[in-house]
Write a protein that binds this DNA or RNA. Structure first.
Lengths: 229, 229
DNA sequence: CGTAGCCTTGAAGGTGATCAATGTTTGTGG
DNA sequence: CCACAAACATTGATCACCTTCAAGGCTACG
């Protein structure tokens, strides 16, 4: 399974159509790492010595407010680069803490390889840029909803996550996500998220099993997302 | 003034220390454009044929919610690249509408030059990445404040803008900004922003003259920003 | 001198935060 | 495999902060 990380990355347009020698240059010193649930990959503020490509599973990128509560900046899903932007910065530190949600697999690539191979490789940089572009757009979409009611924000987050992790048309979110995490990702209080999800459960819209959310009525979720409730 | 855009860009670390031939390659087909107040540079959804570097003034990057109201994703300030991320994407369209705030100057660079020169130039890409990194961090900071009271969000936005546009220690924001724009950028209603700013005016914290905001008591603004009110 | 764009103020009402208490599930060490 | 701790979920009551709606004023500019 681990051995096949290359195929997985190619699915997401990374390393696709590259020669064997190009690939080995881009992966010089790379290390496949399996992370356990809640295991930390990077700690925010630590010196950035490598970046990672998500191969399987999902990771949360977390920041902390001065007042101590946590908020989730982004969920990194397969194909996502993590910590790549800071590589260009000598002595840069990771801007976020990165923690695995459920078991996941990442490919850790040393900063030196980034500088020697990635940054000089147009195709590679383009795939990194494409992912950053997507991430930016995702953040913009989220910002666009600041004034929308909480249910709408949660619906968006949920369907966006399912689509990105499971693919178009899926209904089960295979990574474990707590109400707290959902709250931290939409900028709300846990209790408020719980009230929304409980309501949805009652209405038969979703089902939760052991921190795994299944959407039973995607059509209704989409309606809520659009504010048609 | 226009002729000196290179010096201005170098101040922000772009094109710095490059040879004459490198610079002319990076600026092949580039065009200096002066924008009037409220003039549009890019319309969201249009095919992206070039990107721009902000030389002087400021631009707002705007999106529209389905319900029609506007929200401001980012204020682009001198040194900022605009539309650069979408260059890697063939047939990509601008994800945001870009409008000048007050008169401003940008350097428009064709997509072909991005593909031929920028994307192959490690140093150039690094400076673009550095700016994107900053923009991301700015958005993260903003996200971190979703639960903070409105006054805090406005204080942050204001001081961040002043620092980025005018430099450390400045107190006057030289670009015209309306209450509506401030509201759209922090995700609030105009009236709410007005109430906060009026209160600040009464307390002698700020002064507004013809859409230009001056901070009279930066110390107090910082206190508010930190939630110490 | 009238329109357009922006600013202001007040009143009413709602959404979600906070606090507090309790139940439930999961994980771990003996 | 049990017992206890830790993490997570739930529910209710209260209340602050903003939004919304409505109405009116100011200033610039063609």
């Amino acid at each position: 399974m681990v051995s096949n990380y290359r195929a997985e990355l190619k699915k997401h347009g990374i390393l696709e159509g590259r020669s064997e020698s190009e690939i080995s240059a881009l992966l010089a010193g790379a290390e496949v790492k399996e992370l356990r649930h809640r295991e930390m990959l990077y700690r925010g503020g630590d010196k950035a010595s490598n970046f990672a490509l998500v191969v399987a599973g999902a990771l949360k990128l977390v920041k902390y407010t001065p007042s101590g509560d946590e908020f989730i900046v982004h969920f990194a899903t397969p194909g996502d680069p993590v910590g790549a932007l800071v590589m260009s910065n000598p002595n840069g530190t990771y801007p976020v803490t990165v923690v695995s949600m459920g078991p996941s697999i990442v490919l850790k690539i040393p900063k030196s390889t980034f500088m020697n191979a990635w940054s000089k490789d147009t195709q590679a940089m383009q795939s990194v840029n494409r992912m950053l572009f997507n991430r930016m757009n995702d953040m913009h979409e989220q910002r666009a909803m600041t004034k929308a009611p909480l249910a709408q924000k949660i619906a968006r987050q949920l369907s966006s996550l399912i689509e990105r992790i499971e693919g178009e048309g899926a209904t089960v979110l295979s990574i474990p996500i707590t109400r707290q995490e959902l709250a931290d990702s939409v900028g709300a209080a846990v209790e408020s998220v719980i009230r929304v999800l409980s309501e949805w459960s009652r209405r038969g819209l979703i089902m939760t099993m052991d921190h795994h959310i299944e959407v039973l009525r995607m059509d209704l979720l989409i309606k809520i997302l659009k504010g048609e409730d």
